[in-house]
């Protein structure tokens, strides 16, 4: 475990010296937190704009709104739920930068060879790299969700809307699915990172993992299907299995010799 924590600390020392990476870890969550709060604030202020919005909502959604909810409240709930998806995306996007660079970066600086010459096992190395990227992403997500929740509680006065906001489904999504997503995205980026020779390629390829989730996001918006508690739990379960598989795969695919010698 000592070796894993050494790797984590080392990665953080390096990452947080890189302004660009720091920016992506800090800016994205801030942006994703501020945006829905501003939306909520604007909508709470003028009810006429809210009426206009209701027309654009998927009809499946309006049906879900309880009868005692006003159209305005229903629209607010709609907006809130849309932005909840962002909190599931965040842990997916934030660590890509760090993880994608983490192996190929060591190849370019030639620091991988002395590192692999130490008695560290592949699993320890990858676990360290994994946690180094996933932990900041998860923390940033939780933190921004906290800020968002407090902010929303201050802005929104309707208890029905607040209830929708603190629906256990969303709490599950942010607390459970988020971190699992982060681990998935990190593992995928690590696999890509250990297979390519160019950091830019690693980042671009890693972004591929985000696309399916974006699809879910847009499917949600266009009312194709709606998330519910069961679906979230199912997702979490599925992700857990996938995470373990991908981690195993990452260790198997990390062939020390190929990584050292195919790089010139």
């Amino acid at each position: 475990m000592k070796k894993v924590s050494t790797i984590i600390k080392k990665e953080w020392m390096q990452v947080f010296k890189n302004r660009l990476v720091l920016f992506s870890v800090l800016f994205l969550p801030l942006f994703f937190t501020a945006l829905p709060l501003i939306m909520l604030g604007v909508m709470g202020g003028s009810s006429s704009s809210v009426e206009g919005l209701t027309g654009e909502m998927p009809s499946e959604f309006t049906q879900l709104c309880p009868a005692e909810m006003t159209a305005g409240e229903c629209a607010q709930v709609f907006v809130v739920t849309q932005f909840m998806m962002l909190f599931m995306l965040m842990p997916l996007i934030i660590p890509v930068n760090i993880a994608a660079y983490s192996i190929v970066g060591e190849k370019t600086t030639r620091s991988l060879e002395p590192l692999l010459a130490t008695p560290i096992t592949t699993a320890e190395l990858l676990l360290g790299k994994n946690m180094a990227a996933a932990i900041p992403a998860i923390l940033a997500t939780w933190l921004s969700f906290g800020i968002y929740a407090v902010g929303a509680a201050l802005i929104v006065s309707s208890t029905t809307v607040l209830k929708a906001l603190f629906d256990p489904m969303w709490l599950l999504a942010v607390i459970l699915v988020g971190p699992l997503m982060a681990v998935l995205s990190v593992n995928f980026s690590l696999i890509v990172s250990s297979r390519v020779n160019d950091p830019r390629v690693a980042e671009q390829l890693s972004a591929v993992v985000i696309v399916p989730v974006l699809l879910v996001f847009f499917a949600q918006i266009s009312g194709l299907f709606l998330l519910n508690q069961q679906l979230i739990l199912l997702m979490a379960l599925g992700l857990l299995v996938v995470d373990i598989l991908v981690l195993y795969l990452a260790v198997r695919l990390f062939q020390r010799e190929a990584i050292l010698t195919r790089w010139k």
Partner: peptide, 26 residues
Amino acid sequence: ILTETPGLYDNLSAEYNLKIFANLYE
């Protein structure tokens, strides 16, 4: 092993570079 290229962590201090390896070698 002294590898063909030093392969140091350029953005970390000399001391920290060594500290990492001291820990990895336990």
